[in-house]
């Protein structure tokens, strides 16, 4: 028995642009998770992740014909669009919420200043280690954060990430190394701070 043919992204996109609703929903289901999670990891906010997902697929509806399969995968193309949207929205948010303080050398502020999620109750119940990793990623400067999210969390190849970020593969490689070093540094600091906080809690006076 032969397996049913799975249509490629390029084929689905062609059908979608011709008005095929089934092709659109298939394409959307195939990629919506990637885009949503990318935006969520980049921003730490579900509202931004939702908005980015909407905007990316609306842009695909309007300008999908600009995608060239010869240049790379549709995943890279969509991640590139999502990245631009995320940066745009984070820039708009910046006057209200200072997510990351960057110094010239790419260092960020201590992670303790960033522990103020939208959902504090949910934060408490989530796995502590995962929470620390996500917050450490959020505290990274954008240029390192986007590479780490794409290559480590989304498992894109360096070439695919380079296409999404519109930069050479060598830049992806060097940013990934630097990003890892910063991430490890933050995680070490976060674990230390956590330990200090729990020690202090143990010494609390109830008199």
């Amino acid at each position: 028995m032969t397996k049913p043919m799975v249509p490629s992204d390029a084929e689905l996109l062609r059908l979608m642009l011709a008005g095929d609703e089934q092709a659109f929903t298939t394409l959307y289901r195939r990629h919506k998770g990637h885009i949503y999670r990318f935006a969520l990891l980049m921003s730490g906010q579900t509202s931004i992740a939702e908005e980015v997902t909407q905007e990316v697929f609306l842009a695909l509806l309007r300008n999908g014909s600009r995608y060239d399969p010869a240049r790379g995968s549709l995943t890279s193309y969509l991640c590139g669009a999502a990245r631009n949207q995320v940066l745009l929205l984070l820039e708009k948010e910046r006057p209200y919420v200072q997510l990351v303080e960057e110094s010239d050398d790419g260092e960020a502020v201590p992670i303790t200043q960033l522990i103020a999620g939208d959902d504090p109750l949910g934060d408490c119940t989530r796995n502590e280690a995962n929470r620390l990793v996500r917050q450490a990623v959020l505290a990274l400067p954008e240029r390192y954060r986007e590479v780490i999210v794409l290559c480590d969390f989304q498992e894109l190849s360096y070439a695919e990430a380079a296409l999404a970020l519109d930069c050479p593969v060598g830049t992806v490689n060097s940013r990934l190394h630097r990003g890892h070093a910063l991430l490890l540094q933050k995680l070490r600091a976060a674990v230390r701070l956590d330990t200090t906080a729990s020690d202090a809690q143990g010494m609390r006076c109830f008199a």
């Binding site: 997902t53 909407q54 990793v133």
Partner: peptide, 26 residues
């Protein structure tokens, strides 16, 4: 640790209202 976060986020998807809005837009 990264793998653990990926596993935790594996089920995270946009809510149904985004699906509906995009379908309407299409």
């Amino acid at each position: 640790r990264v793998r653990a976060v990926v596993a935790e986020l594996a089920g995270e998807e946009p809510p149904a209202r985004v699906d509906a809005a995009l379908l309407a837009a299409f």
